[in-house]
Design a protein around this nucleic acid. Structure first.
Length: 263
DNA sequence: GACCAGGTATTGC
DNA sequence: GCAATACATGGT
């Protein structure tokens, strides 16, 4: 049951533009750059400043894991399942748009939609890949353009988000300096952005590590694994705890069924 | 063919 | 406030 460290981070549900190759390496895009990353070249890749930032190399994950393991035995279990998860520094607009698309959708289809969106509207980059489309680009589209790509009922949400970001009514630079609750409230002004997508934007796109997205899996996990606890229980890196718990829960759904049998 | 997928907006009590 | 429902789409 060995999962390589790279897969734990790139395949744990926080990002959608990496493709796992047959040999366990990954190819994908971030910040308009293409990369092929493997266990072997990872150390070299993160010598580059951009990738070091993307992979959050400046944060002491060893220490944070230690804290988590001391905090709660079930959290310790989740950490042990995929200890090498790191929270990536994704672009805020890409994170927001990606998680708008994620609602009521499955990971495979989310990746497919995003891939088509990039091919159709993103700037061309290396190896025939495309950057994530700029908000200005998507702001000029009609619902129909996005329906063609399979966006479904999320099409108008994406366009509203693109408009608000490109006109500056939602300004990630400003949100960065705001208290979490305030930034969250501002984000939910966008149609199609509720508390969950707002928290995903804050955690994955703005590196607000205290943000704690509550999707169906996390609700289940909180109820059965951490009854009576709130996100605050996990401290200022609650978002990282969330990622450990989310991935552990997704990968071991039987833990909920066993619980149901006992009841 | 019904049911589900990292939700949200709208409506009705 | 809180439960119910519609919202496109593709895969089991």
């Amino acid at each position: 049951m060995e999962r390589n460290a790279l897969a734990q981070t790139l395949d744990c549900g926080q990002c959608f533009r990496w493709k796992r190759e047959a040999d366990g390496s990954f190819t994908g895009m971030a910040g308009g750059r293409w990369a092929h990353i493997s266990e072997d070249n990872f150390a070299d890749v993160v010598k580059d400043k951009f990738w070091a930032g993307y992979f959050d190399m400046g944060l002491d994950y060893v220490g944070i894991r230690l804290e988590f393991c001391r905090l709660d035995p079930l959290l310790e279990k989740a950490v042990a399942f995929a200890p090498d998860i790191r929270i990536l520094n994704q672009e805020p607009w890409e994170a927001m748009c990606s998680f708008i698309i994620s609602q009521c959708n499955n990971i495979g289809r989310i990746k497919g939609i995003i891939s088509r969106l990039c091919t159709a509207y993103g700037e061309e980059a290396e190896n025939g890949m495309h950057a994530f489309p700029l908000p200005e680009k998507l702001a000029s589209l009609k619902d129909e353009d996005l329906l063609r790509l399979g966006c479904g009922f999320r099409a108008p949400y994406i366009i509203d988000a693109a408009r608000r970001v490109s006109c500056g009514s939602v300004d990630f630079g400003v949100l960065k300096g705001m208290p979490l609750a305030e930034a969250r409230k501002k984000l939910t002004c966008v149609r199609g952005v509720g508390p969950k997508v707002a928290d995903c934007t804050l955690l994955y796109g703005m590196h607000r590590l205290e943000a704690f997205p509550m999707d169906v899996w996390m609700k289940r996990a909180m109820k059965t694994l951490f009854p009576g606890r709130t996100p605050e229980f996990f401290g200022r890196y609650a978002g990282i705890a969330q990622q450990y718990i989310y991935y552990y829960s997704r990968s071991n759904p039987q833990i909920f069924k066993e619980d149901a049998l006992k009841a």
